[in-house]
Computed example of a mutant assay.
Amino acid sequence: MELFLNQDNFKHWQRGLIGFENLTPQIGMKGSKRKLKIKTLVGTVTMTEEITKRDLPRQWEATYRTKGVVNYQSNRFRESEINTEHGTQVQTVWEATSIFKFTGMMRLVAAAKPELFEKQTFQFMQDFKDFAENGTSVSQL
């Protein structure tokens, strides 16, 4: 959770992140807002993030808004035991649900390439896993 919540780490696992600005005095709490600037395949996007639920270490939710897109993001975390050749280990399972709503021209983009949005979410999750487990930073790629 420390790695996930620490905004200084965003550059290590949020591929394409150019920068961010906190818009509210409370950082990372329910109701707090942040402006994010991200380079994507279709250009640079500026979006506003609002944290809508924070029930850690189990759940963290946010809504992202940019022109033509609203993304409701729900992240759930749980521990799970796995058996390895070295014994039983505890791992964190991260389940994410994204709901996208599109308006205007973004409806056409979403209809033509719906996999782009799913792939980007999965890429963030994979990049976080690589950062958390191996110290790999997307800023060094």
Rank of each mutant, 00 (worst) to 15 (best):
N6G: 11
Q7F: 10
H12A: 13
W13M: 08
Q14L: 07
R15N: 14
R15Y: 12
G16Y: 01
G16E: 04
L17Y: 00
L17M: 10
L17C: 10
I18Q: 09
G19W: 05
G19F: 08
F20I: 09
E21P: 11
E21L: 12
L23Q: 10
T24D: 13
G28I: 05
M29N: 08
K30L: 05
K30Q: 11
K33S: 15
K33D: 12
R34Y: 05
K35H: 09
L36A: 13
L36Q: 07
L36Y: 11
K37V: 13
I38M: 00
K39Y: 00
L41E: 13
L41M: 06
G43E: 00
T44S: 13
T46G: 04
M47Q: 11
T48D: 05
T48L: 10
E49D: 15
T52L: 05
K53T: 11
K53L: 11
K53D: 14
K53N: 12
L56I: 15
R58I: 10
R58T: 13
R58D: 15
Q59N: 10
Q59P: 00
A62D: 13
T63C: 04
T63G: 03
Y64E: 08
Y64K: 06
R65M: 13
T66R: 01
K67H: 03
G68H: 08
V70H: 02
N71K: 12
N71C: 15
S74Y: 07
F77D: 03
E81F: 06
T84Y: 00
E85V: 15
E85G: 14
G87D: 05
T88N: 11
T88F: 03
T88Y: 03
V90K: 06
Q91A: 07
V93D: 09
W94N: 12
E95N: 15
T97I: 13
S98W: 02
S98V: 03
S98G: 15
K101H: 10
F102L: 09
M106K: 04
R107M: 14
R107L: 14
V109S: 01
V109W: 03
A110V: 01
A111T: 13
A111P: 03
A112C: 07
K113P: 04
P114M: 06
P114S: 08
E115G: 06
L116T: 00
E118W: 02
E118Y: 04
E118C: 05
Q120L: 01
F122V: 10
Q123P: 01
F124Q: 05
M125Q: 13
Q126G: 00
F131I: 03
A132G: 03
N134M: 04
N134F: 06
G135K: 01
T136D: 04
V138F: 00
S139Y: 03
S139I: 06
S139C: 06
L141M: 06
L141R: 08
